[in-house]
Amino acid sequence: MNFVKTLATAALIASLSAPAFAETFTFTAIPDQDDSALKARFGKIANYLTKELGVEVKYIPVKSYSAAVTAFRNNQVQLAWFGGLSGVRARNLVKGSQAIAQGAEDKAFKTYFIAHTSTGLKKSSSFPKSMAGKTFTFGSKGSTSGRLMPEFHIRKNFKKKPKNVFSRVGFSGDHSRTIALVQSGAFQIGAVNFAVWDKELKTGKIDTSKVSIIWTTPDYPDYNWSIRGDADKRYGGGFIGKVKKALLNMNDPNLLKQFPRNSFIAASNDDYAPIVSVGKEIGLLE
């Protein structure tokens, strides 16, 4: 009886602690626009990576940047397509993890400040201080382009917290929603990822007689592929290098448009130093 018990316990412990036989490499990604049909779209990326890396690669969909960071931290995913801020947070939490690639567009990302026509605000090259006292919406709370960078510029120019600058501050949760809310006048001003705006403008979803760009932030680094530092140990020496190569070599437009990016270029943790200092300055990073 005791023997059976010991055996059962041993089996249980083994099943809980032993790594699976064929190690699956798992990643997650949240595109900055249109997150419909995630599994089908990123399943293609998984297939590509499986072929390039020689291990089974799986994609799991997540809902938010913080969920992506948590999955990365808990080793539920080993690779993730993060925003600038969430990437920094993830790498802070997982020692040895590194940014290995970014989109060609992410080297010089921008945020547009947009305003409803009724505000009378016009496009300007200097920071529009006349926004003070209006209603304002960010995107999602953990977004680099929808939260971190616009908040940084607001604080820098007004020397005040956003809630003390505007009569009301909201978090729309999504770039497309930010545009819809400002276009309807529900909020007078909003901060939106430039790529999402450009795309929606092209597809005719924006009525420029209702909402327009009033200011563009200076460039900053944004989205990135980050990988856990223990990937080499788990999947074999040189694995991180292989992943990086596979990402940089991804040139099938059908794959790239899922992110959507034109190509991927090499990146390092240091490229995101501006995000770290901005994040610390406005208290979003410890």
């Binding site: 809902k63 729309s172 949760g173």
Partner: peptide
């Protein structure tokens, strides 16, 4: 999961 995305993005 799908409702939130679809609603946020106006689908």
């Amino acid at each position: 999961f799908h409702l939130e995305s679809a609603f946020s993005q106006g689908r």
